[in-house]
């Protein structure tokens, strides 16, 4: 399975970003190969509007099965994410990426 996480940095120890649309990085963890890759999303900072759909589009390109984030995508971003079958887990806004993944594995995160 491929797991996506919204994070403030590109590493496992990076803090999660509770926001979806304006997250600086999307981490993609491939459970089969045990590989962690980071999608740089910092460019959305320059966008006054439309960050949500843009980030959602990047997420869809990575084609994960699971998204772990803080507040969950809203509005336009939610509409784009909903076109793909991605299970969304929220409430990981105050953890590191590593902790968030562990919490997901332990069934401690709420499914949207």
């Amino acid at each position: 399975m491929k797991i996506a996480l919204t994070a403030q940095g590109p590493h496992w120890d990076s803090a999660m970003d509770p926001r979806f649309g304006r997250t600086p990085y999307i981490l993609i963890y491939d459970e089969d190969t045990d590989e962690l890759t980071a999608i740089d999303n910092r460019a959305v900072d320059n966008e006054a509007h439309g960050a949500g759909p843009l980030t959602a589009r990047k997420l869809l390109d990575a084609a994960p099965q699971v998204l772990i984030t803080g507040n969950g995508p809203g509005g336009n971003a939610a509409a784009v994410v909903a076109t793909a079958e991605i299970a969304i887990y929220v409430g990981a806004g105050n953890m590191t990426a590593k902790e968030a993944y562990a919490a997901y594995k332990d069934g401690k995160l709420e499914k949207m």
């Binding site: 966008e47 509007h49 439309g50 960050a51 759909p53 843009l54 959602a56 589009r57 869809l60 336009n76 509409a79 784009v80 076109t83 793909a84």
Partner: peptide
């Protein structure tokens, strides 16, 4: 999607989504 400067249109593999407020 490429040409829109306002990210108001997103081309997904099987559909195009338009965000009127953007």
């Amino acid at each position: 999607q490429e040409v829109c400067n306002f990210h108001a249109i997103i081309a997904l593999p099987d559909q195009v989504m338009i965000f009127p407020e953007l």
